[in-house]
Protein backbone atom coordinates (compact mmCIF):
# COMPACT_ATOMS: atom_id res chain seq x y z
CA UNK A 1 0.00 0.00 0.00
CA UNK A 2 1.03 3.50 -0.73
CA UNK A 3 0.16 4.58 2.78
CA UNK A 4 2.42 2.04 4.48
CA UNK A 5 5.32 2.76 2.20
CA UNK A 6 5.06 6.52 2.69
CA UNK A 7 4.86 6.23 6.44
CA UNK A 8 8.13 4.37 6.43
CA UNK A 9 9.89 7.68 5.92
CA UNK A 10 11.41 7.34 9.40
CA UNK A 11 13.52 4.41 8.21
CA UNK A 12 15.51 6.80 6.07
CA UNK A 13 17.96 9.44 7.16
CA UNK A 14 16.15 12.43 8.51
CA UNK A 15 16.90 15.90 7.19
CA UNK A 16 20.10 17.07 8.75
CA UNK A 17 21.54 13.54 8.98
CA UNK A 18 24.20 13.32 6.33
CA UNK A 19 22.83 16.42 4.65
CA UNK A 20 23.86 16.27 0.99
CA UNK A 21 23.12 19.84 0.06
CA UNK A 22 25.00 22.38 2.11
CA UNK A 23 23.31 25.68 2.94
CA UNK A 24 24.43 28.34 0.52
CA UNK A 25 26.53 31.02 2.21
CA UNK A 26 25.03 34.51 2.37
CA UNK A 27 27.76 35.73 0.04
CA UNK A 28 26.79 33.30 -2.69
CA UNK A 29 23.05 33.33 -2.11
CA UNK A 30 20.77 34.36 -4.95
CA UNK A 31 19.09 36.82 -2.59
CA UNK A 32 22.35 38.64 -1.94
CA UNK A 33 23.23 38.64 -5.62
CA UNK A 34 19.80 39.87 -6.71
CA UNK A 35 19.65 42.60 -4.06
CA UNK A 36 23.22 43.73 -4.68
CA UNK A 37 22.74 43.74 -8.47
CA UNK A 38 19.59 45.82 -8.28
CA UNK A 39 21.07 48.27 -5.78
CA UNK A 40 24.16 48.70 -8.00
CA UNK A 41 21.90 49.17 -11.02
CA UNK A 42 19.78 51.75 -9.21
CA UNK A 43 22.85 53.61 -7.96
CA UNK A 44 24.34 53.59 -11.45
CA UNK A 45 21.17 54.95 -13.04
CA UNK A 46 20.67 57.46 -10.22
CA UNK A 47 24.32 58.54 -10.48
CA UNK A 48 24.10 59.17 -14.21
CA UNK A 49 20.79 60.97 -13.72
CA UNK A 50 22.35 63.02 -10.93
CA UNK A 51 25.30 64.15 -13.04
CA UNK A 52 23.06 65.07 -15.93
CA UNK A 53 20.40 66.76 -13.76
CA UNK A 54 22.92 68.56 -11.56
CA UNK A 55 24.85 69.85 -14.57
CA UNK A 56 21.69 71.02 -16.31
CA UNK A 57 20.33 72.58 -13.10
CA UNK A 58 23.63 74.33 -12.42
CA UNK A 59 23.63 75.82 -15.93
CA UNK A 60 19.99 76.88 -15.59
CA UNK A 61 20.70 78.43 -12.18
CA UNK A 62 23.67 80.34 -13.57
CA UNK A 63 21.59 81.58 -16.47
CA UNK A 64 18.74 82.71 -14.21
CA UNK A 65 21.26 84.44 -11.89
CA UNK A 66 22.77 86.26 -14.86
CA UNK A 67 19.29 87.32 -16.03
CA UNK A 68 18.44 88.56 -12.54
CA UNK A 69 21.69 90.55 -12.32
CA UNK A 70 21.12 92.14 -15.74
CA UNK A 71 17.57 93.02 -14.78
CA UNK A 72 18.54 94.59 -11.44
CA UNK A 73 21.46 96.50 -12.98
CA UNK A 74 19.21 97.73 -15.79
CA UNK A 75 16.53 98.97 -13.39
CA UNK A 76 19.04 100.68 -11.09
CA UNK A 77 20.89 102.29 -14.01
CA UNK A 78 17.71 104.01 -15.19
CA UNK A 79 17.44 105.65 -11.73
CA UNK A 80 20.87 107.28 -11.99
CA UNK A 81 21.34 110.66 -13.63
CA UNK A 82 24.36 110.33 -15.92
CA UNK A 83 24.78 114.12 -16.08
CA UNK A 84 25.68 114.17 -12.36
CA UNK A 85 27.90 111.11 -12.55
CA UNK A 86 30.07 112.56 -15.30
CA UNK A 87 30.80 115.66 -13.23
CA UNK A 88 32.37 113.74 -10.35
CA UNK A 89 36.14 114.10 -10.12
CA UNK A 90 38.74 112.42 -7.86
CA UNK A 91 38.70 113.89 -4.35
CA UNK A 92 35.00 114.85 -4.46
CA UNK A 93 33.91 111.98 -2.19
CA UNK A 94 32.53 114.39 0.39
CA UNK A 95 30.49 116.50 -1.98
CA UNK A 96 26.70 116.53 -1.89
CA UNK A 97 26.59 115.22 -5.46
CA UNK A 98 28.70 112.18 -4.61
CA UNK A 99 26.88 111.47 -1.34
CA UNK A 100 23.50 111.82 -3.06
CA UNK A 101 24.39 109.28 -5.74
CA UNK A 102 26.06 106.93 -3.27
CA UNK A 103 23.06 106.96 -0.91
CA UNK A 104 20.68 106.45 -3.79
CA UNK A 105 22.75 103.42 -4.89
CA UNK A 106 22.88 102.08 -1.34
CA UNK A 107 19.12 102.47 -0.91
CA UNK A 108 18.40 100.62 -4.15
CA UNK A 109 20.86 97.89 -3.25
CA UNK A 110 19.25 97.50 0.18
CA UNK A 111 15.97 96.60 -1.53
CA UNK A 112 17.49 93.41 -2.89
CA UNK A 113 18.55 90.57 -0.63
CA UNK A 114 20.67 89.03 -3.34
CA UNK A 115 22.83 92.05 -4.24
CA UNK A 116 25.82 92.74 -2.02
CA UNK A 117 27.45 95.73 -3.80
CA UNK A 118 26.40 98.45 -6.22
CA UNK A 119 28.80 100.87 -7.91
CA UNK A 120 29.31 103.07 -10.93
CA UNK A 121 32.35 102.88 -13.21
CA UNK A 122 33.41 104.57 -16.38
CA UNK A 123 36.00 104.24 -19.12
CA UNK A 124 38.64 106.92 -18.49
CA UNK A 125 40.35 106.31 -21.81
CA UNK A 126 43.19 104.60 -19.92
CA UNK A 127 41.01 101.87 -18.48
CA UNK A 128 38.02 101.30 -16.24
CA UNK A 129 37.85 103.48 -13.11
CA UNK A 130 35.43 103.71 -10.20
CA UNK A 131 33.18 106.75 -9.91
CA UNK A 132 30.83 105.87 -7.05
CA UNK A 133 31.02 102.92 -4.67
CA UNK A 134 27.90 102.56 -2.50
CA UNK A 135 29.91 101.37 0.51
CA UNK A 136 32.20 104.41 0.49
CA UNK A 137 32.29 105.87 4.00
CA UNK A 138 31.09 102.67 5.67
CA UNK A 139 33.77 100.22 4.52
CA UNK A 140 37.50 100.88 4.49
CA UNK A 141 37.86 98.73 1.38
CA UNK A 142 35.53 100.95 -0.63
CA UNK A 143 36.87 102.33 -3.89
CA UNK A 144 37.50 106.04 -4.26
CA UNK A 145 36.68 108.16 -7.29
CA UNK A 146 39.18 107.45 -10.04
CA UNK A 147 40.50 104.23 -8.56
CA UNK A 148 41.28 101.94 -11.46
CA UNK A 149 39.74 98.52 -11.76
CA UNK A 150 41.69 95.82 -13.52
CA UNK A 151 40.39 92.25 -13.66
CA UNK A 152 39.14 89.89 -16.32
CA UNK A 153 35.80 91.66 -16.01
CA UNK A 154 37.06 94.75 -17.86
CA UNK A 155 35.95 93.45 -21.26
CA UNK A 156 32.47 92.68 -19.87
CA UNK A 157 32.26 96.18 -18.39
CA UNK A 158 33.33 97.68 -21.71
CA UNK A 159 30.59 95.63 -23.39
CA UNK A 160 28.07 97.06 -20.89
CA UNK A 161 28.69 100.53 -22.34
CA UNK A 162 26.41 99.33 -25.14
CA UNK A 163 24.00 96.84 -23.56
CA UNK A 164 23.25 95.37 -20.14
CA UNK A 165 25.38 92.25 -19.59
CA UNK A 166 26.39 89.84 -16.83
CA UNK A 167 29.66 88.11 -15.96
CA UNK A 168 30.21 84.97 -18.00
CA UNK A 169 31.26 83.19 -14.82
CA UNK A 170 32.43 83.88 -11.28
CA UNK A 171 35.47 86.13 -11.03
CA UNK A 172 37.66 87.10 -8.11
CA UNK A 173 38.98 90.55 -7.28
CA UNK A 174 40.27 92.14 -4.09
CA UNK A 175 36.72 92.35 -2.68
CA UNK A 176 35.90 88.66 -3.11
CA UNK A 177 34.41 86.23 -5.60
CA UNK A 178 31.36 87.49 -7.44
CA UNK A 179 29.07 87.28 -10.37
CA UNK A 180 28.02 90.74 -11.57
CA UNK A 181 25.50 92.45 -13.76
CA UNK A 182 26.24 95.70 -15.60
CA UNK A 183 24.03 98.24 -17.34
CA UNK A 184 24.79 101.53 -19.10
CA UNK A 185 24.18 104.81 -17.23
CA UNK A 186 23.00 107.47 -19.68
CA UNK A 187 22.98 111.25 -19.60
CA UNK A 188 20.04 113.46 -20.51
CA UNK A 189 21.03 113.19 -24.18
CA UNK A 190 20.76 109.40 -24.01
CA UNK A 191 24.49 108.87 -24.34
CA UNK A 192 26.22 106.22 -22.23
CA UNK A 193 28.54 107.96 -19.80
CA UNK A 194 29.18 105.21 -17.25
CA UNK A 195 28.30 101.65 -16.24
CA UNK A 196 26.39 100.62 -13.16
CA UNK A 197 27.48 97.32 -11.66
CA UNK A 198 25.80 95.06 -9.09
CA UNK A 199 27.49 92.08 -7.41
CA UNK A 200 26.16 88.82 -6.09
CA UNK A 201 28.63 86.86 -3.96
CA UNK A 202 29.60 83.37 -5.04
CA UNK A 203 28.49 82.09 -1.64
CA UNK A 204 24.85 82.88 -2.36
CA UNK A 205 24.89 81.23 -5.79
CA UNK A 206 26.90 78.28 -4.49
CA UNK A 207 24.44 77.88 -1.61
CA UNK A 208 21.62 77.58 -4.14
CA UNK A 209 23.61 75.03 -6.15
CA UNK A 210 24.48 73.07 -3.02
CA UNK A 211 20.84 73.00 -1.95
CA UNK A 212 19.84 71.54 -5.31
CA UNK A 213 22.75 69.07 -5.16
CA UNK A 214 21.90 67.92 -1.64
CA UNK A 215 18.21 67.58 -2.55
CA UNK A 216 19.08 65.37 -5.53
CA UNK A 217 21.47 63.32 -3.33
CA UNK A 218 18.71 62.87 -0.74
CA UNK A 219 16.15 61.78 -3.33
CA UNK A 220 18.69 59.39 -4.86
CA UNK A 221 19.63 57.93 -1.49
CA UNK A 222 16.01 57.43 -0.44
CA UNK A 223 15.11 55.90 -3.82
CA UNK A 224 18.01 53.44 -3.61
CA UNK A 225 17.09 52.56 -0.02
CA UNK A 226 13.39 52.00 -0.76
CA UNK A 227 14.15 50.07 -3.97
CA UNK A 228 16.71 47.98 -2.09
CA UNK A 229 14.18 47.12 0.64
CA UNK A 230 11.50 46.20 -1.92
CA UNK A 231 13.93 44.02 -3.88
CA UNK A 232 15.22 42.44 -0.67
CA UNK A 233 11.64 41.59 0.36
CA UNK A 234 10.67 40.08 -3.02
CA UNK A 235 13.90 38.14 -3.41
CA UNK A 236 13.52 36.83 0.15
CA UNK A 237 10.07 35.33 -0.55
CA UNK A 238 11.35 33.89 -3.83
CA UNK A 239 14.46 32.36 -2.28
CA UNK A 240 12.42 31.05 0.68
CA UNK A 241 10.24 28.99 -1.68
CA UNK A 242 13.24 27.79 -3.69
CA UNK A 243 14.75 26.64 -0.40
CA UNK A 244 11.53 24.77 0.45
CA UNK A 245 11.73 22.95 -2.88
CA UNK A 246 15.39 22.26 -2.25
CA UNK A 247 14.64 20.87 1.21
CA UNK A 248 11.94 18.57 -0.17
CA UNK A 249 14.28 17.35 -2.93
CA UNK A 250 16.97 16.70 -0.34
CA UNK A 251 14.62 14.73 1.92
CA UNK A 252 13.39 12.59 -0.96
CA UNK A 253 16.92 12.04 -2.23
CA UNK A 254 17.77 10.76 1.25
CA UNK A 255 14.82 8.35 1.12
CA UNK A 256 12.28 10.28 3.19
CA UNK A 257 9.20 9.57 1.05
CA UNK A 258 6.89 11.42 3.47
CA UNK A 259 8.29 14.74 2.23
CA UNK A 260 5.84 16.96 0.36
CA UNK A 261 6.13 20.07 -1.72
CA UNK A 262 4.56 22.94 0.20
CA UNK A 263 4.86 25.95 -2.09
CA UNK A 264 1.83 27.97 -3.16
CA UNK A 265 2.68 30.54 -5.81
CA UNK A 266 1.17 31.66 -9.09
CA UNK A 267 4.45 32.49 -10.82
CA UNK A 268 7.19 30.44 -12.50
CA UNK A 269 8.40 29.13 -9.13
CA UNK A 270 4.83 27.97 -8.46
CA UNK A 271 4.88 26.13 -11.81
CA UNK A 272 8.21 24.56 -10.90
CA UNK A 273 6.75 23.50 -7.53
CA UNK A 274 3.70 21.93 -9.23
CA UNK A 275 5.89 20.03 -11.70
CA UNK A 276 8.14 18.91 -8.89
CA UNK A 277 5.14 17.82 -6.80
CA UNK A 278 3.79 15.82 -9.75
CA UNK A 279 7.14 14.15 -10.25
CA UNK A 280 7.47 13.28 -6.57
CA UNK A 281 3.93 11.90 -6.43
CA UNK A 282 4.59 9.67 -9.45
CA UNK A 283 7.85 8.52 -7.93
CA UNK A 284 6.10 7.58 -4.69
CA UNK A 285 3.35 5.69 -6.54
CA UNK A 286 5.87 3.78 -8.64
CA UNK A 287 8.04 2.96 -5.68
CA UNK A 288 5.06 1.66 -3.72
CA UNK A 289 4.06 -0.38 -6.76
CA UNK A 290 7.50 -1.99 -6.83
CA UNK A 291 7.16 -2.78 -3.13
CA UNK A 292 3.92 -4.67 -3.76
CA UNK A 293 5.50 -6.90 -6.37
CA UNK A 294 6.40 -10.36 -5.14
Amino acid sequence: MIVSRINRGSEYPTPGQGRLIQLVSARHSLQTKLTASFIILILLISGLTFFYTYGATKAALKESTQDELIQVAGIMATQINGDNVILLQPGEENTTRFIGIRDHLAAMRANSNEITNAYIMKDSGNGIIFVVDDIYGTDSNAARIGESYTTGENSTIAEAMKNPVASKDFYTDKWGTFMSGYAPVRNSAGETVAVLGVDMTADKVMAKQDFIGYTIYLIMGLSALIAGLIIFYFSRTMIRDIRKLNDTAEKISMGDMSAMVNVQRNDEIGELANSFSRMVASLKIMMSDDDNKP
Binding site: A281, I285, D289
Partner: peptide, 19 residues
Amino acid sequence: TTVYLGPASGKFLERQTQS
Protein backbone atom coordinates in the same frame (compact mmCIF):
# COMPACT_ATOMS: atom_id res chain seq x y z
CA THR B 1 -5.46 13.31 -11.76
CA THR B 2 -2.41 13.42 -14.04
CA VAL B 3 -2.16 17.19 -13.45
CA TYR B 4 -1.53 16.48 -9.75
CA LEU B 5 0.08 13.03 -9.67
CA GLY B 6 1.90 12.83 -12.99
CA PRO B 7 2.37 9.79 -15.24
CA ALA B 8 1.78 7.26 -12.46
CA SER B 9 -1.83 8.45 -12.08
CA GLY B 10 -3.16 5.45 -14.01
CA LYS B 11 -1.56 3.06 -11.54
CA PHE B 12 -2.77 5.15 -8.62
CA LEU B 13 -6.38 5.20 -9.81
CA GLU B 14 -6.32 1.51 -10.73
CA ARG B 15 -5.14 0.74 -7.21
CA GLN B 16 -7.91 2.85 -5.66
CA THR B 17 -10.69 1.19 -7.64
CA GLN B 18 -9.24 -2.31 -7.17
CA SER B 19 -8.75 -1.86 -3.43
